[in-house]
Nucleic acid binder design. Structure first.
Ligand SMILES: NC(=O)c1ccc[n+]([C@@H]2O[C@H](COP(=O)([O-])OP(=O)(O)OC[C@H]3O[C@@H](n4cnc5c(N)ncnc54)[C@H](O)[C@@H]3O)[C@@H](O)[C@H]2O)c1
Ligand SMILES: NC(=O)c1ccc[n+]([C@@H]2O[C@H](COP(=O)([O-])OP(=O)(O)OC[C@H]3O[C@@H](n4cnc5c(N)ncnc54)[C@H](O)[C@@H]3O)[C@@H](O)[C@H]2O)c1
Lengths: 203, 203
DNA sequence: CTCACAATGTGAATCTTTTCACACTTGAAA
DNA sequence: TTTCAAGTGTGAAAAGATTCACATTGTGAG
């Protein structure tokens, strides 16, 4: 049975916050404290954590270190190797951001087709021509890509990378991709996001 | 009763796609065609459109022009005036993108505190010092802001702008904001997004 | 040692969202 | 005309997500 997207999102968030807490020297945490840091209700947090293999104690809550371990165990601990395609404004900004702050993943390669964007280094990540994608993706075991290419090429590029073994795409181009339905696609359109907030600001 | 966030998101998406279709000269569309362009199922689209004041015909589907009008009517047609706070890499990229491609909203002012970011023009949008926020927000009727400031100041800035009348925030800083609960906050964290896709690439 | 407390773990209830399935509509073709 | 094919509109069922509420538990104060 496929796990719920909503729940996975929340759990990823808990982990992120917990890692920060651990850094800050916190050893224990109650569900209502985690709630304040993540926007999930205490009851929901307890329910989410139910299927982890750690449990909390009424007196001291959850042990931060154990919880991180359990979450890693639940969703996977390996530092994910991802690639980004399209090294324009957005692509560069994301690469810098992700490689500068993520604990759990790294953008290990960038791809573009413009010669001046190829063979550079951005945020510790080398850039290649897209035609080398398959080779490098195989070498590095890349299964996930971030797509920040212009709309008009997004579908083609998506097909190309999935043929090379990619199984999940985070798509920032405002277009609906058509791919085999065992490929996971998440669309993140900033304009829709702002429109949504604007709507709820008024309602 | 507050409308469902999911549904509003889908409807905003339909509108976006319909506007493109109208530009391209399409006059009519069936639910299954809209489905291919938006990722919602035909049944879901029909259900969403039920509460619009247009209806489709079995032979010709929906009239694109009418549908856009009905959606505008349902969620609001005014071109929303929004502001962006924090004109760093991400802030500039978003401003350019939104002002370059959105039909339904415009970023009309940018704010920062660094003197070299103030009193410039980015994508047709003037930048001001944050201390002038209240004045300008009142003048322009700004109710929605995009927050792209560093984490450490995000909570303060959020409090400041909500005191000045802002009712909705699209927050890109990876921190959970604590505000009065009639303020709508949407968090968009790119790292969580990539982690989620990476998870589902493997599962 | 015992009590009171504050928090956990969780079955059940509730609330929300999506899908199903089919009667109904429209227009074109025979 | 009548029939047929392909869509719409929608009540009802199903699936999914969240919240409730409370028995249970571990701890520290008295
Ligand atoms: N700038 C933003 O804030 C922003 C926000 C949301 C979405 N987007 C979307 O993200 C995409 C990129 O935006 P951007 O502002 O970075 O644009 P950009 O033009 O700065 O960058 C696009 C990059 O993709 C490269 N490219 C073009 N064709 C390619 C191909 N076939 N294979 C590989 N690379 C290719 C280009 O060389 C360029 O470097 C666009 O679809 C845009 O609509 C941008
Ligand atoms: N770069 C990315 O792709 C990216 C992606 C996701 C999230 N983020 C987050 O978005 C935020 C901005 O990222 P960035 O890369 O653009 O950083 P940046 O440092 O380039 O930009 C931050 C801007 O905010 C301004 N600022 C600082 N304090 C301010 C204040 N009190 N009021 C108004 N403006 C203020 C700074 O002067 C600067 O211009 C950060 O929280 C970052 O974590 C960035």
């Amino acid at each position: 049975m496929r796990r719920s997207e909503r729940k996975i999102e929340r759990i990823i968030n808990y982990r992120r916050v917990l890692i920060k807490l651990e850094r800050a020297g916190e050893t224990n945490i109650f569900s209502h404290q985690l709630s304040a840091l993540t926007n999930a209700t205490p009851a929901q947090i307890r329910r989410d954590l139910m299927e982890m293999d750690t449990s909390g104690s009424p007196a001291h809550g959850y042990v931060v270190k154990d919880l991180i371990k359990s979450i890693n165990n639940y969703i996977g601990a390996d530092k994910e190797q991802v690639a980004i395609i399209g090294l324009g404004n957005l692509g560069k900004a994301i690469t810098n951001y992700v490689n500068g702050s993520s604990e759990n993943l790294k953008i290990v390669a960038g791809f573009d087709i413009k010669s001046e964007k190829v063979n550079r280094v951005v945020a510790g990540c080398h850039s290649y021509h897209l035609q080398d994608f398959e080779k490098i993706a195989k070498e590095r075991g890349i299964k996930t890509v971030i797509l920040t290419v212009p709309v008009r090429v997004a579908q083609d590029v998506a097909e190309q990378v999935t043929k090379a073994g990619v199984r999940g795409i985070l798509n920032y181009a405002p277009v609906n991709l058509h791919l085999s339905d065992d490929i996971y696609v998440e669309n993140r359109d900033m304009i829709s996001a702002v429109e949504k907030v604007a709507y709820f600001s008024d309602h």
